[in-house]
Amino acid sequence: MTIQEETTALAPAKLAIDRVSKSFTTGRGTLQALEQVSLKVAEGEFVCLLGPSGCGKSTLLNLVAGLEMPDTGSVTADGRAVRHPGRERMMMFQESALFPWLDTIGNVMFALKLKPGLKRAERHEAARYYLKLVGLEKFMHSNIHELSGGMKQRVALARALAPNPRVLLMDEPFAALDAMTREQLYGDLQRIWEQRHVTILFVTHNVREAVSLGDRVVLFSPHPGRICEEFKINLPRPRDINSVDVAGYATRITKALKGMLQAEGATP
């Protein structure tokens, strides 16, 4: 494998989630996190999963990642059942989950080291390529604690992109950042997505964030987690989170969200 191939985007994968249910047993009984959830995601599509906490959207992400298995139903990526985690489906978390014992480039190289057939120099070069993509090449030998929150998430993005995945799973990756940093990262993410064109599943509870990033916004309702509505976002990119068009969609979705929560409140 050459460095060229390593940094050239592969074809994005399509995902199919078919009648998936998942429950967890806690001290207080059984919690139905997902019930009969079906969702199809096209190749290279950017789908945002939106909903209040406890609606199972993170659980769905874990299932697609292969970190957990569904009780019933199936998850397939490109027609193949997901049975365990794999480098073609990379995940980003709300906390950066970067390893403090490695420096920045060491973190980006972690997954590359697990990829067979790559020489040390090639790994290094690929890692630099991705750090450059997120604009942090200058910080490759920095310690993790020296980076700001936004920089950490950029490194986490570089780390997730480094094994050249075909699906990117993002679990509220910007939720812990301040508004300014977040807006910068929206821009970066859209730019990188256009460039790499991976399939993205993006979990959030921020309506405007979902509208300004997604091709499609999937609304989840809680107890048990179900998909209750979908919105197609027909807006040109790059989108500005403060634009009127985004606000228009956001108002509609917020209304649907409120309606859903009221109905939920009426029948606890």
């Binding site: 990642a65 970190l67 985690p85 480098r87 978390f93 989950a97 972690f110 997954a111 697990l114 094994p163």
Partner: peptide, 14 residues
């Protein structure tokens, strides 16, 4: 050890 580290490592193929 933060369990998130282990989850992140697993998604990276560890």
């Amino acid at each position: 050890v933060n369990p998130l580290y282990v989850r992140a490592a697993r998604t990276m193929g560890s």
